[in-house]
């Protein structure tokens, strides 16, 4: 399993009142799966995704990403996971308005190449030889020059179907096009997992369907593991597996009938 959670809990306190955004979530996602998470608003979908994406620390329970337990107290390892293992796609695109399409895709690569030079290689040197050579092979492909990074960004944009308008600013592009850039950006550092929080929520249904197609293609053709939050059952039906969350818990089987 590439993603596994055990008894995952996340509590918020509003004054004296405890809000359990996640209340014991056990989730398993196999590598190469396309999982959609559905559930009513406020049921804890975003919270789950943020915890999986290492943006938020859980109150309790354990998360395993790519076989290793996530240490939410270790800032360095969280940063490393955000850089290499997961790629985020947001509902509101969240592109940098001053950067054009290519530059937006290059943006996360900047952090990645820089980290490689310093701490990372050193830290793994102590580990066993095999994993070291693997990580080195990976970092080699990442020690890219500026022009290489731009070229890679262009390739990614082409892959998401935005080959022509790569020098445009986000404000000059439609919502669908912006979300395509965001998907390309999520792919920038070759993550194994793509986490998408209502990626179609701000798009009309036709454009949204196209984004879903895009994610499916990445899942099919490149084996990316995709976890997508959506409140649209029609979209969810087209993914490999549907997980419903209710009040911070995975509700088993209730939706099955409707999905079939």
């Amino acid at each position: 399993m590439i993603i596994e959670t055990r008894g995952l809990r996340k509590y918020y306190w509003l004054g004296r009142e405890k809000v359990a955004a996640l209340d014991g979530v056990n989730l398993g996602v196999e590598a190469g799966e396309f999982v959609s998470i559905v559930g009513p608003s406020g049921s804890g979908k975003s919270t789950l995704l943020n915890v999986l994406g290492c943006l938020d620390a859980p109150t309790g329970g354990a998360v395993f990403l790519d076989g290793e337990q996530v240490d939410y107290k270790n800032k360095r390892s969280l940063v490393a996971l955000r850089r290499k293992v997961v790629g985020f796609v947001f509902q509101t695109f969240n592109l940098l308005p001053t950067l054009n399409a290519v530059e937006n895709v290059v943006y996360p690569m900047i952090f990645n190449t820089r980290e490689k030079k310093k701490g990372e290689g050193r830290g793994k040197r102590k580990g066993e030889g095999r994993s070291e050579s693997r990580s080195e092979g990976r970092s080699e492909s990442r020690s890219e020059s500026r022009s290489e990074r731009r070229a890679k960004a262009r390739r990614l944009l082409e892959r998401v179907g935005l080959g022509s308008r790569v020098e445009h600013l986000p404000s000059e592009l439609s919502g669908g096009e912006q979300q395509r850039i965001a998907v390309a950006r999520a792919l920038a550092n070759d993550p194994k997992i793509i986490l998408a929080d209502e990626p179609t929520g701000n798009l009309d249904s036709r454009t949204g369907a196209k984004i879903l197609e895009l994610l499916k293609r990445l899942n099919d053709e490149e084996g990316k593991t995709v976890v997508m939050v959506t409140h649209d059952l029609e979209s969810a039906k087209r993914t490999g597996k549907v997980v419903e969350i209710l009040d911070g818990r995975i509700s088993d089987g209730r939706l099955d009938g409707r999905l079939q």
Binding site: L55, R76, V79, R82, N94, P108, F111, R114, N189
Partner: peptide
């Protein structure tokens, strides 16, 4: 926040 979500460290 976005930069951090995309992999920027504190020092970045």
């Amino acid at each position: 926040g976005l930069s951090k979500a995309l992999g920027a460290s504190d020092s970045d």
